[in-house]
Design a binder for these strands. Structure first.
Length: 203
DNA sequence: TGTACGATAAGCT
DNA sequence: GCTTATCGTACAG
């Protein structure tokens, strides 16, 4: 399998569209320990100003959200509790939007992922969650702001998602109306999605 | 299946 | 300084 980074223009589209376009793409991370890659099977869109759930809500500009105000196609990594979360920035300059990658399907570097994650009960426990996949792939806040069009961290063409489902986002209960936006996308029937395996899209 | 709690850093007062 | 957060795990039931 050839894993060529996508060209810069790939990220130049509306955030909701990008969130769906990313499904099926490969997320590749190369570290000193080796290369690891996963096929993206679940994403969520965060559209800054009008989205109370986004860190950039109301154009809030801080050192952490800064990268979202820049060009699209950069890594927005941030730490929560004991875990790191990985987003792809979207929207043109000045538009603080992003796509959260919530789950991937391991493709390359399985042994490395297992070594990083430790023993897991089920195969899909390796990467079926935002905090899990960053640990499995070796993504850290050191990758913050990195362009996703060149190694060591990049997006590559993968097998396109067959059926895409959409539904409510996860983990944003305290976000008022924003919690009802159906901005979560995943490949229907894929066992590696974080939640809602087999669950239908809700409105 | 559901609920509790950990343990870090950004952001706010 | 204090509060909250795009979560994961453990353990009870």
């Amino acid at each position: 399998m050839r894993m060529e980074p996508v060209r810069d223009g790939f990220f130049d589209r509306p955030t909701l569209e990008l969130a769906q376009a990313l499904l099926g793409m490969l997320l590749v991370c190369v570290t000193e320990e080796g290369a690891a890659a996963g096929r993206i099977v679940e994403t969520e869109a965060y559209i800054g100003p009008e989205d109370r759930a986004a860190h950039s809500c109301g154009n809030r500009r801080t050192p952490r959200t800064e990268v979202m105000f820049g060009p699209p196609g950069r890594a927005y990594v941030y730490v929560m509790h004991t875990h790191s979360l990985f987003n792809v920035t979207s929207g043109k300059e000045g538009k603080p939007e992003a796509v959260l990658v919530r789950a991937v399907e391991p493709v390359l570097g399985l042994e490395l992922m297992r070594a990083r994650r430790g023993p897991v009960k089920r195969p899909y426990d390796l990467t079926n969650g935002p905090g899990k996949l960053t640990k499995a792939l070796g993504i850290t806040k050191a990758d913050y702001g990195r362009p996703l069009t060149a190694p060591p961290l990049f997006i590559a063409q993968g097998r396109p998602a067959e059926a895409v489902a959409c539904g409510l986002r996860i983990g944003i209960e305290g976000s008022g109306e924003a919690r009802f936006y159906p901005w979560r996308f995943w490949e229907a029937g894929n066992p590696y999605v974080s939640r809602g395996r087999g669950a239908a899209a809700r409105e």
